[in-house]
């Protein structure tokens, strides 16, 4: 693995996941992954947050996960010998479905339009970086 690829992976895939995890860890300890760590106390209870803080805490991790996944898939695509047709559409559909499924099919999740916008924005941002 060359240094440039490593930096891309760290910056575009790992860093967003770390940021998303930190948001969950410090503000939403009720989610499964944080409960497993034994951490229980949010820095600020959700009931005391203003609208912007809630938006960051609830949609921020979705943005980070979507950005990271899109970037990982685009990096994978770039490593292929020849371009894959409809791959961008494939990534878009994964991101879209991952949010829409939360409303209809998956217990323990909630569909929120802010989350959907955040996820699609993350996809768009990742796609822009991919073009460079």
């Amino acid at each position: 693995m060359n240094a440039r690829l490593l930096i891309r992976l760290l910056l575009h895939c790992v860093l967003p996941l770390v940021i998303g995890f930190a948001i969950y860890y410090f503000f939403r300890p009720e989610v499964a992954v944080i409960r497993w760590t034994g951490h229980h106390t949010p820095l600020i209870p959700v009931s005391e947050m203003n609208d912007w803080q809630r938006l960051l805490v609830f949609s921020g991790p979705d943005f980070c996960w979507s950005y990271s996944l899109s970037a990982a898939l685009f990096i994978w695509q770039k490593a292929q010998d020849r371009p894959l047709p409809y791959f961008t559409l494939f990534v878009f559909l994964i991101i879209l479905l991952s949010e829409l499924l939360q409303g209809w099919a998956l217990p323990g999740f909630t569909l929120d339009w802010a989350d959907l916008i955040a996820a699609l924005s993350a996809f768009g941002l990742s796609w822009m970086f991919k073009a460079r």
């Binding site: 009720e30 990982a72 994978w76 994964i94 999740f109």
Partner: peptide, 18 residues
């Protein structure tokens, strides 16, 4: 593998109940 890893992370962020 990439899809599985991210699916795992996705499931790990579920909340106990609505």
């Amino acid at each position: 593998l990439i899809l599985f890893v991210y699916a795992g992370l996705y499931i790990a962020t579920s909340t106990p109940d609505k």
